[in-house]
Design a protein around this nucleic acid. Structure first.
Lengths: 205, 205
DNA sequence: GTGCTTGTTGCACGAACGTATAACAGGGTG
DNA sequence: CACCCTGTTATACGTTCGTGCAACAAGCAC
């Protein structure tokens, strides 16, 4: 069916096909045959290139996590050198394409449910989330948040962003991406200026 | 293997076994044979009582959602008549047993990933989440939050609580349930007194 | 062109899946 | 005790799963 291809190209094709299948048909539909069909190749290629479907799923996890991290970092870089602007961009990027995408949430949920019980996948997950939180702690510290408060602040921001991203992707009719950004930036303003009232322009609601 | 039982008792046994299997082995392990074995009955009973494994999973979703709603409502009722106390109890209950339970998160994730693509399950999910948000809006309004701000406030609180609950169950070593409660109550304080600074005792971090 | 390496295919195998069905057995009613 | 209703079991069937394997073929060294 398919012409001979560079091994790394083929691997990337299979990973992207796996992500697509995960998004469209959920964890239940992520069979070797389905993924191979989505990549227009024979089922045997999965075993040949990855040595099993589990390893392909793990590679897909890394692929998606790297894409998300890259999108966030690009937003920070594009925000210039002002620390508050960089922090705001990092947070707001979670509600913008390509991160605010129902297909991405679907893939993420499928990967999570597949990862349960697999120690290697669990370690991957811990590593990715720790990276997100550490990046957030650095951005918060650069904004002048006291070192003693940085840890809990990062936990709160991570939770709020995660929750907003999840609900935004799950039922986009409930609220808009812009409303999510306003909620999140109001929370950030409350963290930065803990002793002053929330600026009325950023007030929640 | 098992003695003759009341149909509703047997149905409840099967649902609880399904929830247990979902939590322990994820969506992949939720087969008719596994669930039946966990309930110490024959696989045929699932078809007999539910007419298929899909319908058993749907019933399990309703069961878990009802348990969560009941636990939240019990916390509200136990908090007395003070509106802020009732709101605080509703939020804090999410970080207390039986809701703050890794097994519950595992079940929830498995159900979510199984629900994708199934319109009936999706409708169930929308109904449950809408109920949570409406309940929160009532509690917020009773605390004096302006009607124009209630909607976004409820969205923010839902997101923060969801995110904290998720991370608390996923990696309990990152932070404690008490820290989650402090983050959430500080956010609530900021919502109630939008024009005054955050009370220092409830400050985040 | 010839031969070797290797990406690719098609198939076969065993296992596990969901479910339909027939036989068995418990428990209330006469 | 006999009878019927129905919860329960065991089995069987067709499908789909993951993967190992032998054969095919495309590209490259010579």
């Amino acid at each position: 069916m398919s012409k001979r291809a560079n091994p790394e190209d083929r691997r990337r094709d299979l990973i992207e096909a796996a992500v697509r299948v995960l998004a469209e048909r959920g964890a239940a539909g992520a069979s070797v045959r389905t993924i191979a069909a989505a990549a227009n190749v024979s089922p045997g290629l999965v075993t040949h290139h990855f040595g099993g479907v589990d390893r392909l799923v793990a590679a897909s996890y890394d692929h998606v996590a790297a894409q998300v991290a890259a999108a966030l970092e690009a937003a920070v870089a594009a925000a210039g050198s002002s620390p508050p602007a960089r922090l705001g961009a990092f947070v707001a990027a979670n509600f913008t394409a390509p991160i605010a995408d129902p297909a991405l949430l679907a893939t993420w949920l499928a990967l999570w449910s597949l990862a349960r019980g697999d120690p290697a996948m669990l370690a991957r997950h811990e590593h990715h989330y720790a990276g997100f939180r550490v990046r957030l702690e650095v951005l918060l510290a650069e904004c002048g948040v006291a070192p003693a408060r940085v840890r809990l602040a990062a936990i709160g921001v991570t939770a709020l962003v995660d929750g907003l991203w999840l609900e935004l992707c799950l039922s986009p009719d409930s609220f808009s991406a812009d409303e999510a950004r306003r909620i999140a930036t109001a929370y950030l303003a409350g963290l930065r200026g803990g002793d002053s009232p929330l600026p009325s322009g950023e007030r929640v609601g």
